[in-house]
């Protein structure tokens, strides 16, 4: 079975069956990354462009490694080295890349909807690697893979997502994915960081960390973006971390076997205390490991051979 979609733009458009297919496929790819020779010929002769208009270490490297372990040729283009700095539009950049006949384009962009624009314009498969505050589908997939791996299921679990929900694409993709898979999702943050009408996405909203994480199975902490304070969205990092930092005291409110997740990069001591980030509940690095497997699975399912 393959994905019939041309593009992966968001979890919103992916069915439960497709999510399961991607996660099952990803599990079968985990083993490749543990071999001494970490390479299979699955995507030999395929070309993947990583088009990154926004700084990224984790996601870009993960996509690159995923492509390379499947023997695809991966090329990285970042905004600072591309003709964007010379004033070229996204569409022109895309058409030029299209003219070189790659098989897939992975795009990260600060503007929501940029991958959709690209998908309309070019014939290649587009994978959204994060668009503004909209979606980050591969992050949600790797998060779901990690939850399933550790808990054996997703349905029925209580998941608290904490932080700047308004500006978080990770939160949105996870809300779509986790609710589809039958989890109960809670979002929490200061009122200014909770976007309007988010309850209609099927989540409950809390403004106190302690209320949000009570008896939950999973806590997903989001990175607080420093520049939001300059936009006067919240008073100070001090105020934020006093009330929203996950630490050894408040974590006791969650279930005993709670998992602590974070999409990275973490601000140690701001939204998560170091002992929690490095402690026994943390699966933050497992998320990163699974990220490679999920991206291998997606690339394989989208552009892999007909076999």
């Amino acid at each position: 079975m393959k994905l019939t979609k041309k593009d992966i733009l968001g979890i919103k458009d992916i069915s439960v069956e497709e999510i399961k297919l991607i996660l099952d496929t990803a599990e079968s790819f985990i083993e490749v990354s543990t071999r001494e020779i970490k390479k299979v010929p699955t995507l030999r002769g395929k070309t993947i462009i990583n088009l990154f208009f926004e700084a990224s270490t984790r996601t870009r490297t993960s996509f690159e490694i995923a492509g390379k372990r499947l023997s695809a040729d991966t090329i990285n283009i970042s905004a600072s080295t591309s003709s964007v700095v010379k004033g070229e539009t996204l569409i022109d950049t895309a058409r030029n890349i299209e003219a070189m006949n790659p098989d897939a384009i992975v795009i990260r962009h600060s503007a929501a909807g940029a991958p959709h624009l690209l998908a309309r314009m070019v014939k290649q498969s587009i994978i959204n690697a994060g668009d503004g505050a909209h979606e980050h589908p591969t992050q949600a997939l790797l998060d779901m893979m990690t939850i399933r791996e550790k808990k054996g299921r997703i349905a029925g679990l209580a998941v608290a997502i904490v932080g700047d929900i308004a500006h978080s694409r990770v939160a949105r993709s996870n809300i779509y994915g986790l609710t589809k898979m039958g989890a109960r999702v809670i979002v929490a943050g200061p009122a200014m960081m909770i976007p309007r009408d988010i309850e209609r996405m099927g989540v409950s909203v809390y403004h106190k960390l302690e209320d949000a994480i009570k008896d939950v199975d999973i806590i997903m902490m989001l990175r607080i973006q420093m520049e939001r304070q300059q936009q006067k969205i919240f008073p100070s990092l001090r105020e934020y971390s006093n009330y929203f930092c996950l630490n050894r005291n408040n974590i006791t409110l969650a279930k005993d076997d709670v998992l602590v997740m974070h999409p990275g990069p973490i601000n140690r001591g701001i939204e998560i205390s170091p002992d929690i980030a490095d402690g026994p509940y943390s699966v933050i690095l497992d998320q990163v490991t699974n990220g490679v497997a999920v991206r291998m699975a997606l690339l394989y399912l989208l552009i892999g051979g007909k076999s």
Partner: peptide, 15 residues
Amino acid sequence: NEGFVSTELGLQGIP
């Protein structure tokens, strides 16, 4: 417009 759709689309809203 700021509301449910802007929240879903991740676009900043004009209330």
